[in-house]
């Protein structure tokens, strides 16, 4: 019967250790501590193309994460993506003319929303919509634009050198 005291202590320690491990994983390893269920407010923004933006992607301003994408929807009338963002409560002074851009983290990283502050005095409130948006860059379009402008540029140069050549005659 006496041995059960030590035994119970060990089992208690074991369970505590397991819970601590779980806690460690939850806090240090995953994003639980960033998870605010309460507080904060919601903003909306429409994009023509959201690329690979996912729910829970970060929303940042000046590089600081101020919120997360909470929902992604589709406007059947205007055929646009409607992104809902949850902003932390302490960032409550965003000007009404704040713009939203979809950027990529690093070269091949995940996409996120970057907000740039405008200059108005009025602030965005819960449920407001961000008017100025820039869709994500689609790689194919960028490349084709680049190639096209390259082609144009070399044509112009050919014309110019042709002219020069003809001038020199």
């Amino acid at each position: 019967m006496q041995q059960s005291k030590t035994l119970e202590m060990w089992v208690g320690a074991f369970v505590a250790l397991g819970v601590v491990a779980l806690f460690f994983l939850a806090m240090k390893v995953s994003n639980l501590s960033d998870y605010q269920g309460d507080g904060g407010y919601l903003l909306k923004a429409r994009f023509d193309n959201i690329g690979s933006l996912k729910v829970r992607a970060p929303v940042s301003m000046a590089g600081v994460r101020i919120g997360r994408v909470s929902a992604i929807g589709f406007d059947k009338q205007r055929f646009q993506a409607v992104v809902e963002m949850h902003i932390e409560p302490q960032f409550d002074s965003l000007p009404e003319d704040t713009s939203a851009k979809i950027l990529t983290a690093g070269l091949l990283g995940e996409q996120y929303i970057a907000l740039e502050a405008g200059g108005t005095d009025e602030v965005l409130k819960d449920g407001s919509e961000i008017e100025l948006t820039q869709s994500s860059l689609v790689l194919e379009e960028v490349i084709s634009k680049f190639l096209y402008s390259k082609a144009e540029g070399s044509e112009k140069k050919d014309d110019a050198s042709d002219e020069k050549a003809s001038d020199g005659k």
Partner: peptide, 13 residues
């Protein structure tokens, strides 16, 4: 089991 698995992951990290 879950306690041990969490322990494994924590120590592994």
């Amino acid at each position: 089991m879950p306690l041990l698995a969490s322990l494994f992951s924590m120590v592994g990290v």
